[in-house]
């Protein structure tokens, strides 16, 4: 059976079918939660931010006019929620902040792979919040440069350059491996 698209679901939501929110939550909770988790290193904060995203989706559902994808709109909300969070924490998005808790996952990974993950999380930590955010949007949320440019209010080229620069910096950090 073919699952309804996000756009079909959203139309039903806008017509009053609130049960759709549950379906959207199931579809997006893991990815958005992990986006916040990587950006905050706090399970508690990531959970709060996830709830805020869905509150806003429900509250502002009428403002989605069907231009672009629902997915892009949801991720844009996520990005704004994160920015509000950093603002409250009085963080400057162009600075590097070493986040206290390390991210760890148990899972079916070899020790070597777990070590690689740890190193990569650590390296991500050494990017500025802006760069880290854009790299995460690109590689985790799989947002396109156009979507990132719209979410961040920058040109598509600037989005592309930012992601590439972030990747280059990660590469350099891991190569030098002083971390």
């Amino acid at each position: 059976m073919k699952h309804p698209t996000d756009e079909q679901l959203f139309r039903r939501l806008q017509q009053g079918d609130t049960a759709v929110m549950g379906t959207l939550f199931e579809r997006y909770k893991t990815i958005i939660y992990n986006y916040f988790l990587r950006m905050t290193h706090s399970e508690e904060d990531a959970g709060d931010l996830l709830m805020t995203v869905f509150e806003r989706i429900h509250k502002y559902q009428k403002s989605f006019k069907g231009k672009g994808k629902v997915r892009s709109w949801i991720f844009q909300i996520g990005n704004n929620v994160l920015k509000d969070y950093w603002r409250q924490q009085k963080r400057d998005m162009d600075q590097v902040y070493e986040l206290n808790n390390s991210l760890e996952f148990s899972g079916d990974f070899s020790e070597e792979k777990q070590q690689d993950h740890k190193m990569l999380y650590k390296a991500l930590n050494y990017l500025s919040l802006t760069e880290k955010n854009r790299v995460t949007m690109y590689y985790l949320l799989e947002m396109s440069y156009a979507e990132i440019s719209e979410a961040e209010g920058i040109s598509i080229n600037a989005a592309r350059i930012s992601v590439h620069r972030g990747l280059k910096n990660l590469h350099k950090l891991l190569k030098n491996s002083g971390i």
Partner: peptide, 14 residues
């Protein structure tokens, strides 16, 4: 590196 980034594990929502 790009592959590694894409394959970083995801945690389940509690």
């Amino acid at each position: 590196l790009v592959e590694q980034l894409k394959q970083l594990p995801k945690k389940e929502v509690s």
